[in-house]
Design a protein around this nucleic acid. Structure first.
Lengths: 361, 361
DNA sequence: CAAGAAAATCGAATCGATTCGATCGATTCG
DNA sequence: CGAATCGATCGAATCGATTCGATTTTCTTG
């Protein structure tokens, strides 16, 4: 009986197609996948049957179970989508990642770690995971993933066993900027950092920041400045954005008697914000205040920002390649990228006779 | 024999855990999923066994086959990641989408339609697909998806049967801006459009644009201007970015004798670019040139841009809700959002005595 | 104390495909 | 002409879990 051939209500499966075409399911599978030898006439018959039944090809869910691969790479970002994508560095990294991953036919699954998702995101059918800009708060989830044998690549995260690290020489880079400012004669510098803790609370940098900070990037860049300056003021921004930079700037620069002559921002967005704040307060950049950034984001702002240019797209690429290597069975070597100093027009020598007395003792 | 209990090389599965715990696989499944009644002692035994075997919980691949759901929503964007995320509107939509989708425990699979991926992306294990800013070039892929019974939601795309549409009243919005400029006395206006064809080639708007254009958004916004002005010059930008706007501006404003007094840009990024171009050419905004944008992106530029504010996040949210509805079995009603006019300081009345004679005949 | 209800557990079918080894013809070669 | 080969196709096992209906155990209650 061919009764089931015209059963047009249920979703058709490969077996139904095979039955209609008069071949075995295995042959039909071969016809679709292209692997293995199938006679042209048979192939045609299978495709005809598929079209007749409105069959759209093998179910990816079943394929991924059988093959043990889903063709999906998870990308975990700490923040919500809106914030994560406001940062040009994240986008650049994602771009590089998408480039490499896309070439293998896989897709990127966006896993923003909002609230209670923490435990849940480990249950998505992915082949590997890339951690981008994540602090340590992911410990449990990562442990779960690793236990499952899932390849994990982390970009600029604290090192963890079994996790391939793609790093940036943040400390050295930050020290370079600090040295640049010292050479220009700056004695009083302020640092505006990326969020250091998962609370993302803004406020002055306290002396005991080291005890509570969890953000690897922020910590390293702070240490870089500390390598050059014994003392410096600081402000922790709530996020990497121009607005957060303005807020930080307005706070740091508020008191004329106690104002730094140079500010090191841990991102270009923050730096632009600080410049905006300076403008609002009537300070000239770099005349009254030098501002240096970090990233090399080339933000349209009317200034040529002094900054450390980091190869963000390359970082993403490297992460992608690491994932591909791991899925192929080989274990990739961790990579550490370096930055390049870019001298712009937002930093300059200290004015000899500006504020009364030099501040550092 | 309990020989297989200590087989520590292969990845453990639920059956192995159940065996070690001395229960049936079905009970073990119940213990993990939480559905169904399981005695506390049994649950503990199962979890112990799982830990002993290093079992990380049910395999998502198998779950998605059995359940028929993968917990993954595909997001198709026409451009590559880098370009797509440069546009604040895309990010805002994605944010709203992620918000709604994330609440259901699903994730977003980024499908940038680069090159030959066209056929491939239909084979990812997703439960539904959201098309964001896509032209008609996706026809084949969409047909394939629809054939497979996959729910499809399209934001501002040409309407297609079986695809839920989330729309914006682009034409009316664009007409509003045009009317605003007419009321200010502008006779010669220029339009800078988003890419109209998939080639993304930049260049002057030709009279026969209507014949080849495929980008719904660009078309509608052009028609809106045409509803108010019989004649206008135009330039097609290569993408929605400040740089593309600068390029367009420099071209359009190059010839002083044949220069519009007002420019309508189809995005805020383009508008900012045009203002920058005007500045470069020594034109004052809005003194010599009025510029209006579209989106309400609130880009930091020193200007308060006259623009149409669109609810981008809400659009994303609506798309998310539509997806959720469809997956729940009900069919959502299409939504059309409207924009709100924002009068900024980049548009103003025409100078009575600027260029010799009014241009339109 | 027996009967019925509720709770806990189990067996077996199922989701939809892939893939390895076996089978069956047809062709080729010695 | 018999044997070896190659191409095409098929059977059956497998991937790893979920879930429905059935069975057993436990707790009430008349």
């Amino acid at each position: 009986m061919t009764a089931e051939a015209s059963d047009s209500r249920e979703k058709p499966n490969l077996a139904a197609v095979a039955a209609l075409a008069g071949v075995s399911p295995s042959t039909a599978s071969l016809a679709f996948s292209g692997a293995g030898p199938v006679a042209e006439s048979t192939r045609a018959r299978v495709f005809d049957a598929a079209e007749k039944l409105n069959y759209g090809g093998p179910d990816p869910r079943a394929q991924s179970l059988r093959r043990g691969r889903s063709g999906i790479i998870g990308v975990v970002m700490e923040e919500r989508v809106r914030d994560a994508f406001r940062d040009p560095m994240n986008i650049a990294m994602l771009d590089g990642l998408a480039d490499e991953i896309g070439a293998t036919g896989s897709g990127l699954l966006l896993l923003t770690e909002t609230g209670d998702d923490r435990l849940g995101f480990a249950s998505a059918p992915m082949d590997a995971v890339v951690l981008i800009g994540c602090s340590t708060r992911l410990d449990e989830s990562v442990a779960l993933l690793r236990q499952r044998g899932m390849p994990i690549v982390a970009v600029e995260a604290p090192h963890m066993a079994g996790v391939v690290a793609i790093d940036l020489a943040n400390r050295e880079a930050s020290a370079s900027v600090a040295r640049h400012l010292r050479e220009l004669g700056h004695k009083r510098v302020g640092v505006v950092t990326l969020p250091l803790e998962q609370s993302h609370a803004a406020g002055p940098l306290t002396p005991d920041w080291h005890a509570t900070a969890t953000s690897e990037v922020g910590i390293q860049r702070l240490l870089g400045v500390a390598d050059v300056y014994d003392e410096f003021g600081g402000y922790v921004a709530s996020t990497s954005s121009i607005d957060a930079g303005i807020e930080a700037g307005l706070t740091m620069l508020a008191d004329p008697a106690n104002r730094p002559t140079a500010v090191v921002a841990q991102s270009d967005l923050l730096a632009i914000g600080i410049i905006r704040a300076a403008e609002q307060l009537g300070l000239a950049v770099p005349g009254d205040l030098s501002v240096a950034g970090f990233d090399g984001a080339r933000i349209d702002s009317g200034y040529d920002l002094t900054t450390m240019v980091q190869p963000a797209v390359e970082k993403g690429r490297a992460a992608g390649r690491a994932v591909i290597d791991m899925l192929a069975g080989s274990d990739p070597t961790p990579v550490t990228f370096t930055t390049e100093f870019h001298a712009g027009n937002t930093t300059g020598p200290t004015m000899p006779s500006r504020s009364g007395r030099p501040a550092s003792r």
